[in-house]
């Protein structure tokens, strides 16, 4: 299925972990590598499958380019959406993991129309994500593919921990990963599988 609208925000997928959020005539893209049509481009970390080498959009927010943001910091976009950065990293010996602590971020977006949406970035199930639980979470975009991000089983644990109303798996190429996540997670939240829209 192509898109899901909730509380005035339309969510659609773009690429591996990318999503586009349409809100009151503006578009916020997270990890979209071709952000030409995005008003705001947020990147979780500097990797060719998450961020372009060059950026064409008006506003860029990331830990490494444009309006730089670090976990724990927040920024308000000109459309009134509040963006808060959250840690995203892999567990283990930090020199050997794909995404060491401080390398990237996840984002919690709070929209004036109500929804609170969390894109986790490339992360494992780390304790810092518990900070997101301070308010109800509506939509959680969860990486489920394993190999640098959570496995479907770990991703399901993350959802059970944060209890969003809706969970959308991202960062998967083999649909069986998304389905394992769906099956394990379904009783605890509404899982929605979105197709990747290339446009």
């Amino acid at each position: 299925m192509k898109s899901l609208r909730f509380g005035g925000v339309k969510v659609s997928r773009r690429g591996l972990a990318g999503v586009r959020l349409d809100y009151e005539g503006t578009s916020i893209c997270i990890d979209v590598v071709q952000p030409e049509r995005c008003d705001y481009a947020l990147y979780t970390h500097d990797h060719p499958r998450h961020a372009p080498a060059e950026d064409w959009s008006r506003v860029v927010v990331s830990p490494f380019r444009g309006n730089r943001i670090a976990p724990g910091e927040s920024i308000e976009l000109s459309n009134g959406v509040l963006v808060e950065a959250v840690h995203a990293y892999n567990l283990g010996i930090q020199e050997t993991v794909k995404h060491p602590r401080g390398f990237g971020a996840g984002y919690v977006l709070e929209f004036r129309s109500g929804p609170r949406i969390y894109h986790m970035g490339d992360t494992d199930l780390i304790e810092e994500i518990l900070s997101v639980k301070n308010k109800p979470l509506d939509i959680m975009l969860v990486p489920v593919g394993g190999d640098g991000v959570m496995t479907p089983e770990e991703a399901s644990e993350a959802v059970k921990t944060l209890r969003p109303s809706i969970a959308i798996p991202v960062h998967w190429e083999d649909i069986s990963k998304a389905r394992i996540f769906k099956r394990l997670t379904q009783p605890y939240t509404q899982v929605v599988l979105l197709e990747v829209d290339r446009v």
Binding site: K2, F6, D138, I166
Partner: peptide, 25 residues
């Protein structure tokens, strides 16, 4: 209850575009 924020209805059209509303909404 904990159900108040969860989707009550998801309306889906033939194009594959859906809208969800919570019990509260």
């Amino acid at each position: 209850t904990s159900l108040w924020g969860k989707p009550a209805l998801i309306g889906l059209d033939e194009n594959g575009d859906a809208e969800a509303v919570s019990y509260a909404q």
